[in-house]
Write a protein that binds this DNA or RNA. Structure first.
Lengths: 157, 157
DNA sequence: GCCGGTATACTCGGATATATTATGTCCGAGTATATGTGG
DNA sequence: CCACATATACTCGGACATAATATATCCGAGTATACCGGC
């Protein structure tokens, strides 16, 4: 899985802990987490396209959460990066080779292999969808939230 | 996910349906499924290293299942290709940046983000481990098994 | 007819290219702010 | 002192390189078979 997913989740957490409407620049976030600024920006753009964040150009610009942390799931963030399609791609190799009629009734039903894989994929997605950014905020230690707010304060000073 | 996973599962199904101890060459398998022979071989080698298949060189050589279909899970096959580690890689970015003491007590506990991701990963693995090749044999239409056996017969003729 | 040695055709296995994707970098368009100027 | 035009510094956004990985291919080492000659 893309590294950007991890970065994005931590950035969303930080933006949620700030508890303010003023945007946070990618420069600040990249400094806080010691990440390559330009590439982090690329990842956050994906979240903007997915409607998870909103971006604001100009001085004092940056990124904000597009909606409350309770309404942002891990699945949302993962899908923003990896896309909505399953990790397992069925290419229907059961229909390949000579002497196979693609119109045969047996192919009306989905491939058994694909069905099994999709079942696992759905379980994975179900767990991701059950965890919101707000849940992570509650699970993380208070020190993490405090550190984020401290860092945010020291921006203006 | 690697394409080889799909190929491997279908090959294991074929080997199970054959119901014989004589090995099947990668040449035959690649013909049956219309796949690149050499690259399919590479994928099956991974299964051999994982102990799922056994390989037999020489004339009339090929691949066999190393154990009964009931004892081969989808997780076994996936792990043989993708490795045992989680798709999500935690790089502990919570500890990065200036003014963070890596020895702080808060870091004794696992990263909340990683924990959430791992929970989803475990659910995925649980579903994969619950499905054996034998289960797939039962779920697939009889026509698939029959076609495989027919193909195997026509090898010697 | 039977046995043993040998040639052979076929097998896997790993070393070697190519294509695709992920990662990383750079610079420009655009905007909110700060500043200076005139009223 | 206030309003306004302007300059400016800072923002994101996408176009452009590089590294890593997945995909594909080729050729060699090794083996079970088939063949052939000798007994």
């Amino acid at each position: 899985m893309s590294q950007s997913v991890e970065w994005s989740v931590h950035c969303c957490l930080a933006l949620a802990w700030i508890e303010t409407d003023q945007p946070v620049s990618v420069a600040a976030l990249s400094t806080w987490f010691d990440l390559p600024r330009a590439y982090l920006n690329k990842g956050l753009q994906a979240l903007v396209r997915a409607g998870i964040l909103t971006s604001h150009p100009g001085l004092r610009g940056g990124f904000r959460l597009a909606r409350p942390p309770e309404q942002i799931t891990l699945l949302d963030i993962v899908v923003a990066h990896e896309g909505r399609e399953d990790a397992f791609r069925c290419t229907e190799i059961r229909q390949r080779g000579s002497g196979v009629d693609p119109a045969a009734p047996e192919f009306r039903r989905a491939c058994a292999v694909t069905t099994a894989m999709r079942k696992a994929d759905l379980a994975w997605r179900r767990e991701l969808a059950a965890q919101t950014v707000a849940d992570l905020m509650a699970a993380a230690p208070q020190a993490a939230a405090a550190r984020t707010r401290r860092r945010h304060q020291s921006l203006r000073g």
